[in-house]
């Protein structure tokens, strides 16, 4: 059971990472949100994307050890990147929940930052 949970966690993080990196590009963000990508949104989305992508390595390593993780992680990344590209091409709205999350996060960070 825990093996499957770790696999799902790795797949989720890899997909989130790829989707975030894709959305950190102005053209993709515009296609999904319908508004231009702001500098704060871009910075948050891209950093979170890299973070999620590399975080996906952790459940892979915990599940099967480094020998398998070194194979599973790049292949999960490949699958995620393909799914993100297909989403952007055919159903960009599928990625809207992710942009919504980052926009709320950006608003929260702006509210917290000293004026």
């Amino acid at each position: 059971m825990s093996e499957w949970l770790l696999l799902v966690a790795a797949a989720f993080l890899a997909f989130l990472g790829c989707a975030s990196l894709a959305l950190s590009l102005p053209r993709n963000w515009l296609a999904v949100v319908g508004e231009p990508l702001g500098a704060t949104d871009m910075a948050i989305t891209r950093r979170a994307g890299w973070l999620a992508l590399f975080a996906a390595l952790l459940p892979c390593a915990i599940r099967d050890g480094p020998g398998f993780a070194a194979l599973a992680w790049p292949l999960l990344f490949a699958l995620s990147a393909f799914l993100v590209a297909m989403s952007l091409s055919y159903r960009a709205v599928l990625l809207r929940p992710i942009t919504g999350f980052y926009r709320r996060l950006a608003r929260f960070l702006r509210a917290c930052s000293p004026r």
Binding site: C18, L21, A22, L25, N28, P74, L75, F77, A78, A81, F82, V84, A85, M86, L88, S89, Y90
Partner: peptide
């Protein structure tokens, strides 16, 4: 910049090139 790019609705040759790049780069 073109990592996640696949434009099936563009002219066919462009779409084929996008697909070649996409499948080549992701894996």
């Amino acid at each position: 910049q073109e990592f996640f790019t696949f434009r099936p609705k563009k002219r066919a040759r462009r779409a084929v090139l996008d697909f070649h790049n996409l499948t080549g780069v992701i894996a």
